[in-house]
Design a protein around this nucleic acid. Structure first.
Length: 111
DNA sequence: CTATTGACGACAT
DNA sequence: CATGTCGCCAATA
């Protein structure tokens, strides 16, 4: 069998570590890209972490919608931030009123 | 090796 | 609050 050369998702070590960590986040909880970066031992590789999540083709299995920005914004999502929002709402995280950063604090998951 | 690309963050304006 | 800028970093071309 010819296994498509550059098709199959080949994840680097770093990317795997990131996705693996994300899998630990429980339903209804979130972490920031920054926290995640620190959790994989690369506290400054925040942007790289985001790029890694972008390679998550198993959105069903890996809940990367639970990774948001430090400024309280949702951040990106492969299938559109609109979907990200919905998924989070389904988990009981529906933004209401006040300061965004403050709001999300009560949902932050500690690795 | 160099340049570019981003689901980011912190800070200045 | 809305931009812009700069720093960071892994992956890619």
């Amino acid at each position: 069998m010819k296994q498509s050369p550059s098709n199959i998702n080949k994840l680097t070590n770093f990317e795997k570590r990131v996705l693996e960590k994300v899998s630990e986040i429980p339903r209804g909880r979130v972490v920031t890209y920054k926290i995640l970066a620190g959790a994989v031992g690369r506290p400054k590789a925040v942007r790289a972490v985001g790029n890694a999540l972008n390679k998550n083709l198993s959105l069903i299995k890996i809940p990367c919608q639970r990774v948001i920005r430090s400024d309280g914004e949702l951040g990106g999502y492969r299938l559109g931030s609109r979907n990200k929002l919905r998924l989070l709402e389904k988990e009981g995280i529906k933004f209401s009123g006040q300061n965004k950063v403050e709001f999300f604090k009560k949902f932050i998951y500690k690795f």
